[in-house]
Design a protein around this nucleic acid. Structure first.
Lengths: 231, 231
DNA sequence: GATTGAAGTATTGTTCCACAATCCAACGAC
DNA sequence: GTCGTTGGATTGTGGAACAATACTTCAATC
């Protein structure tokens, strides 16, 4: 009879994660920010929020630090925190960063971890399904998943985390815009095209297509910003 | 006579930054970690450190959150924080991420912000100066500056911050190794070569040279790790 | 009328303390 | 040697307190 070690050794040694209050608070706030329930620029009072969530100011402040590091909150000394309010420079920065990461991911997709390409295709399909349902918010979410899946082609957990942050910030950008509802829909077909090129092993062509995508999307966002600035 | 507004408008509107206790504590800890004064794996007691630094546990914990988000500290629930101890997987991850960023930066160097190429060359020179002096630690620092300067070719503050974090983690990797003293020196000549190609506008060639650099450096680090594992 | 000064108020930054929850090491029972 | 149990140490969280700073208001001045 084999020893118990054989069986135990096959188990994935992941530490089962319990959640601290700080992380739950951070998750909740992050969700509200990404959903748009907290408008960019909103000041967050330690007093009131800690009372609302029934947590101590200490705990809340630790959560604020986390979200500040993710750039979803901005922390001004002696003035507290407020929801980040990205401007045109931020949009340009985000796209520069995304270009570097996602294009590199597509170009090097030959070394992608197993299942990563399939994940990209699933994200595309889920976006199309959302379009069928007329679920505009779902389209946006699926689009985010698409780009996260593209970034995941790099096979780097750290890059994944960075992508997650960048896309969360991008959601903030959409909330600054006037009409984010039907922003993503036109890009669904492009996602399908890129996904197809990727699956066909035409990595360079996929990257080129995504580059054009980025140019158009960035211009569209920047136009929306200048429209806001002058309006 | 012109109004005072003319003169004021010309001033750069940077908010003069005051430092909070949390940030000073975080800076200090970060410095100790990067310098190697705090060995990877070291447990950090809230009690003792807060007494040592004469700050409250709350303030210290906020600093811990920051450094945890930078992956310099690992936070285990109910077990406190300890200095991160990168393993071979982390090294592979760091290099995957760096490859994506730095190679993209070199390939797209045509769009680099003004002065960015010069900064790369300065970093190389400062490394060579450190070699003249026999300043081994200085060589390592200059090498970090070189790679940060390469990343800065992207012209993205967010990417800069990410590069800073990745390189800080990499310093941790060196501390896990046995003899980090003369690790960097052999790469000085490569930096010079890459810098030269970059300045000559041969961006693709520069990126190719850096790719080989990465392959060699990663292999060397991974070998050092497996040597540790078996020894 | 606009700007400056000087209150007073509200909020944040930081410290300190208390206590429950959890971990960890030691010890002993089987 | 494995399994409870016990007790001490550390972390997680809450809460109060106070100093430091920002914001508001209003009067005084030019």
């Amino acid at each position: 009879m084999a020893t118990a070690g054989d069986w135990i050794d096959r188990l994935p040694d992941v530490a089962l994660e319990r959640s601290s209050t700080v992380e739950r608070v951070a998750d909740m706030l992050r969700g509200h920010i990404i959903d748009g329930a907290l408008a960019p620029g909103t000041r967050l009072s330690e007093e009131r929020i800690s009372r609302k969530f029934r947590v101590s100011r200490n705990t809340l402040r630790e959560a604020f630090r986390l979200l500040g590091h993710e750039r979803l909150l901005v922390h001004e000394f002696n003035r507290g925190v407020s929801v980040a309010k990205p401007d045109a420079d931020d949009v340009a920065d985000l796209f520069r960063f995304r270009r570097a990461l996602e294009l590199a991911a597509l170009r090097g997709a030959a070394d992608a971890p197993p299942g990563a390409v399939a994940a990209v295709q699933e994200a595309v399909s889920s976006g199309e399904a959302a379009r069928e349902r007329g679920d505009w918010w779902g389209i946006g979410t699926a689009n985010m998943h698409f780009h996260r899946a593209v970034g995941a082609l790099l096979g780097s957990p750290r890059a994944d985390e960075t992508m997650r942050q960048l896309l969360a910030e991008l959601r903030l950008v959409f909330h600054v815009m006037a009409a984010p509802r039907d922003f993503h829909a036109p890009y669904l077909d492009r996602n399908r095209e890129i996904s197809g090129l990727l699956a066909a092993g035409r990595h360079g062509a996929a990257a080129d297509a995504l580059a054009v995508y980025f140019d158009d999307a960035e211009r569209q966002l920047l136009d929306a910003f200048t429209a806001l600035g002058t309006g």
